[in-house]
Amino acid sequence: MRTVIYSIVVLFCFIAQMTAFHFFSLLNISPDIIIALALHGGLRWGKMGGVQFGCVTGFIQDTLSYGSMGVNMLSKSLIGFIVGALREKYINDSVTSRIMLVTGAVALDLFVYRVMTVAFSGYGLPPALGSGEISQAALNMAAAMALIPVFTAIDERIDRTRGEKDGGYMTISSWK
């Protein structure tokens, strides 16, 4: 049941990302909501669950793109893994920790993309961050902050329907 619902949510996110979001994009940039999915995976299932969920969503994202197989898989897996590891040990819920998590995830995603592209592909990316990349990062942060509570609400709903207790998620309700 949970797998089916998650598959539908992931499918919906990808379709929204590739189609609907482009109609509402700001400055021709649309948010990468898969970062929010990877973050959610880490928060929900810890580092092992996070890395698996991030790996799958990142891999799907790569297959839907062109010539960048492995880049999103690596960045989203690392986001899931690191967030999951932090959640298990250090994170307590607060506005500051939320902002730090989302900022760190967006920065990591950007870092992995730039390192992989510049180091291995030979395409000429400028050394400094462009306005496009900065706008993209800001939009990704806004989208992640807005979407994680939605994903957690879906999770809670599944738990309630199935009569299960909170699966170890860090204070789900406080993210709303």
Partner: peptide, 26 residues
């Protein structure tokens, strides 16, 4: 993770038929 990603990226840059097939299926 790093090894797998680099392998896939290298395959992707050389446009191997297996990568094309994955992208075509998705």
């Amino acid at each position: 993770l790093l090894a797998l990603s680099l392998f896939l990226y290298a395959e992707s840059l050389s446009r191997r038929s297996s990568i094309n097939m994955l992208e075509r299926v998705s």
